[in-house]
Design a protein around this nucleic acid. Sequence first.
DNA 1: AACTACTCGATAATTGTTTTCTATAAAAAA
DNA 2: TTTTTTATAGAAAACAATTATCGAGTAGTT
Lengths: 141, 141
Amino acid sequence: MEVCITSLLRDKGFKVTPQRLAIYNMLSSTKSHPNAEMIFNELQAMYPTMSLATVYKTMEILKEIGLVQVLNAGEDSFRYDAVMTNHPHVRCTECGQVEDVPDINIEAFVNEVSQGTKYQIMGQQFYFHGICPACQRKKSN
Amino acid sequence: MEVCITSLLRDKGFKVTPQRLAIYNMLSSTKSHPNAEMIFNELQAMYPTMSLATVYKTMEILKEIGLVQVLNAGEDSFRYDAVMTNHPHVRCTECGQVEDVPDINIEAFVNEVSQGTKYQIMGQQFYFHGICPACQRKKSN
DNA sequence: AACTACTCGATAATTGTTTTCTATAAAAAA
DNA sequence: TTTTTTATAGAAAACAATTATCGAGTAGTT
């Protein structure tokens, strides 16, 4: 995996820096779909001098070289995902966590939209919001 | 329609003002899914003293009483829609326009997600991006 | 008409994100 | 390895969308 990001950066003329590796490693080892600030906080301990601007600039690059996708879960900030397969997400309106929606087949749906709109569809994002199992339990008590 | 918004506002304890009526009328008579600034610009001629803050405050109220929905088409600003049925939207990455995706049945899809995630799904937003027919033509010339 | 509470609009504040600038670190060249 | 080149990190300022504040004005009620 590290080989992958290292050569991808080099190939596109970007330099390989500890910050970039750290950010990508952190992102690819979590399922929490963090936003820039969450990434920043997470790396504070290990990289105390890192700035939020570096996180943003790095995400921009990682997006450009196709290593992360940007999620828009209807919040006021963007979240990031190192899983590049296009899958829906669901956000809990109580606790705010964002999870993957597993095992959903999108293709037929996308085709239908493509035909119905005459658009050349390049991508899509589906997000659901609701109450996660844990918060449902909390509320019923 | 005006009866509807007037009484809805009153019933919820909001006052009926010319600004609110103008904003809602403008929104309900367009298919362009404008954002706050577009609404503001559109109403400048008729209401030269109206402020952008009023547009935002009004949208907040209209959302609260269920007359508009807020769209998040992956841009840096929110768009608004007076059509309350939940339907997908598609944005052209060339010209930026946002259109409705007609005649799509979402229900089965939502059910599948509900069962797969154990979430109590309260709502969802689907947005697609791609190139609209007009821009496709422009590009091929 | 008078009263009360809500609202408007100007302005300031806030928040997420981007840009600018310069010392420095990474890659290339020697 | 040393030197040279070039991109980058980080601090701070800039920005853009949105929200909050506040005094004057207006809608709705009495």
